[in-house]
Design a protein around this nucleic acid. Sequence first.
DNA 1: CGCTACGTTGATAGGGCTCAAGTAGCGTGG
DNA 2: CCACGCTACTTGAGCCCTATCAACGTAGCG
Lengths: 258, 258
Amino acid sequence: MFQTATCAPRTSRPSLLHATFTAGEQDQAVSRQIAARLERIRDALTVQRRIVRQGDFVYQAGKAFTHLFVVNTGMFKVVNLSRDGREQIVGLKYRGDWMGFDGLAEQRHDCDAVALDTGEVWSISYDALLQAGSREPALMAEMHRAMGHEIARDRDSLISVCTLPADARVADFLCNWADALAHRGLRTDQVTLRMTRAEIGNYLGLTLETVSRAMSRLSRDGLIRFVDKARRELHLHDVPALADFVRVAVEPAPSTLQ
Amino acid sequence: MFQTATCAPRTSRPSLLHATFTAGEQDQAVSRQIAARLERIRDALTVQRRIVRQGDFVYQAGKAFTHLFVVNTGMFKVVNLSRDGREQIVGLKYRGDWMGFDGLAEQRHDCDAVALDTGEVWSISYDALLQAGSREPALMAEMHRAMGHEIARDRDSLISVCTLPADARVADFLCNWADALAHRGLRTDQVTLRMTRAEIGNYLGLTLETVSRAMSRLSRDGLIRFVDKARRELHLHDVPALADFVRVAVEPAPSTLQ
DNA sequence: CGCTACGTTGATAGGGCTCAAGTAGCGTGG
DNA sequence: CCACGCTACTTGAGCCCTATCAACGTAGCG
């Protein structure tokens, strides 16, 4: 469309298409990779382990940046705050993910990182990391890969927000979540939402009512299933179908050929 | 750290509120900082200079990642592509900005970087950078700062897309652009848009018609002024007023979500 | 001069936000 | 134990903003 050149064959964003077709094995492989990464970090660096509980801050906006963090267990949200009190959830973090990169730019965090449930987070002195990284470039590259992933994920969510209608946006959110869980060796049936509708909506650029309606529709269509009356726990029994739903929303054109 | 607490006083994202009140001096200072950063990079590393013209690719999605890039002059867009041919502009780059971080995650780029006008870009071997960075941690920290800025900017645009109505989104876009120009020592009156309405809309998550209407309204309200009939060049004679316009659009939202 | 790309403007429809009412779970205190 | 308040979730009605479709104006260029 805009380019003067025509396109070369290209790989695309993994998120949507990554649907867990081979189920277990591939996820287990990813899970082992994550475990291996964590081990390498723990071996190469002196990390400080902390147990956090729901609502605990890992770091806070405005505080000086001295450490980076790696999630060992649990789930975390990263929240960007503006002076007038509005908040925007800009990321979710799971086992193996790094946190705190937002402090690199100005030596000061501009986000909060908050635990969504009980978990363990490791903190790593940035200075120590720089030194260790100079002895061991592979370690530095490891961190760079994590940053690259963060940038890629941010872009994916930007695209999702820009292009998907509400229902598909929620479905995409659930897909990504299921993938994240599966990649950590967790089951995707019987998962508990650790975020309120308001938080999900905030994250997706929707109101809480729209999220609620979208989930009701997905449930009516059999793509998800609520297991409790409070509607916080749900079955994601068919993630590929969810992914399909997202894909169909993207390209209303049939297009069996590319 | 790790308080369960409710909010402490906090500094906020700079982007919107950064309006150029002291005009010249501060911008010139930033401009000198950028020049100094470029000089440090050129001194510490062997960079390969390349002149590009409008439409030239700096790198392409799918290609192996080997180099990072730094903009010396010109303006670039970073475009994320998906298999079905849809494109999404995910970033704009100016003098002093780094490009190519999207390749770090998988050793393969997943975006195109395209020149919007004539410019000069430097390429830096990533391996060489890792080695140089191990001798000179400050150099590594320099790159990390750039990555931190990229992450912060991505979040800002996510927030903008999520929360601002169309007119304000366009106004915010113009503000950010004016700031970027001013910080590079360029004048903000009589600037030439190097992007079509379609590109701007794509970047902002709007249709080209909506962008066109928004700009017409901004012009009617005296916030911007077109200088040619083709409407590609415009006066940004009062950037603070534009920033105010954005802020007002934000205010009436009291926000729920603790 | 026609062709193409780009931009503007109008009419219309629809998706999501807003406002509002109602339900369910849960902890607290009488 | 139940009433009460609180928070979270759902659902409905109406409206507004933006996408869509369409027509037209303009500039650049072979």
